[in-house]
């Protein structure tokens, strides 16, 4: 499996102050990495630093794929901007300076169509964003991320404010996309139950404990720091 993302001693934080110990991480294709930790633990700060949206305090992101599909929190899409689902998905097809090329979007059409198909959002294409349900919005944002034909999919709390069945549907979709497109996935979520079912690896961060644990899910859930925070719930799930 090819290496997609490599961080070496990456320190993340704000105002030149690191909030977590250095993070060494290697994300390969076909892996699903769950970024877990309590509220305010530094999960989003870590992800935004990896994406290049925040400057690193120390260390480096020594390898980052050319195309990253970023699925932001749904509240990040401004309700004041009129947009249909198809407008958002097409936006995902814009990369770099492609907007300078008048025919670039025509070239991106096959990727947009495939993204709509893979996320089962074709029927929603003409529906205004504000009229979509939470689950539909999430699938549209995933289609937007896929329209850029990424190697790595990064999702920030994709199932917040959803009922359990809709959450399951989103996680099942992520797993299906991982399999069909060979993606690596980095996902921030609080739903430990579903992460325990779908995640192959875990990055556990906790600003209060000053700890970072990264590795295969079955190893991380057994660490003292993880058990101190979450107990043995996930370890019990891993047992046959």
């Amino acid at each position: 499996m090819s290496l997609l993302l490599h961080t070496s001693g990456l320190e993340v934080g704000h105002d030149r102050r690191a909030i977590l110990p250095p993070v060494d991480l290697q994300v390969h294709a076909q892996q699903i990495w769950a970024v877990v930790g309590p509220n305010g633990a530094g999960k989003t700060t870590f992800v935004r630093t990896v994406l290049g949206l925040l400057p690193a305090i120390g260390g480096t992101v020594s390898q980052r794929p050319k195309a990253i599909g970023y699925v932001p929190q749904r509240t990040q899409i401004d309700a004041a901007v009129p947009a249909r689902a198809i407008d958002l998905v097409r936006a995902g097809g814009e990369r770099g300076w492609s907007f300078l090329n008048p025919i670039a979007m025509m070239r991106a059409n096959p990727a947009v169509d495939r993204a709509l198909r893979d996320t089962d959002t074709e029927a929603l294409a003409r529906v205004p964003w504000l009229q979509l349900s939470e689950g539909q919005k999430q699938r549209v944002l995933m289609a937007q991320a896929l329209a850029s034909q990424p190697d790595l999919l990064v999702l920030d709390e994709p199932t917040s404010a959803m009922d359990l069945h809709a959450e399951r549907g989103i996680f099942a979709l992520i797993e299906r996309l991982r399999d069909s497109r060979g993606l690596g996935v980095l996902i921030v979520s609080h739903n430990l139950g579903l992460l325990g079912r779908y995640a192959t690896h875990i990055l556990f961060v906790d600003q209060d404990q000053g700890t970072v644990q990264a590795g295969p899910a079955e190893q991380v859930v057994c660490t003292d720091e993880f058990v101190l925070r979450y107990g043995t719930l996930l370890r019990a799930q891993e047992a046959p």
């Binding site: 290049g52 195309a67 990253i68 932001p72 401004d78 814009e94 990369r95 770099g96 300076w97 008048p102």
Partner: peptide
Amino acid sequence: LWLHRGFAQIVLDRDSAQVRGLP
């Protein structure tokens, strides 16, 4: 008129646009 697709990106979702490498 020529660049409106680029300007639309920073209005729709600035962070996602930056991740996709838009200036």
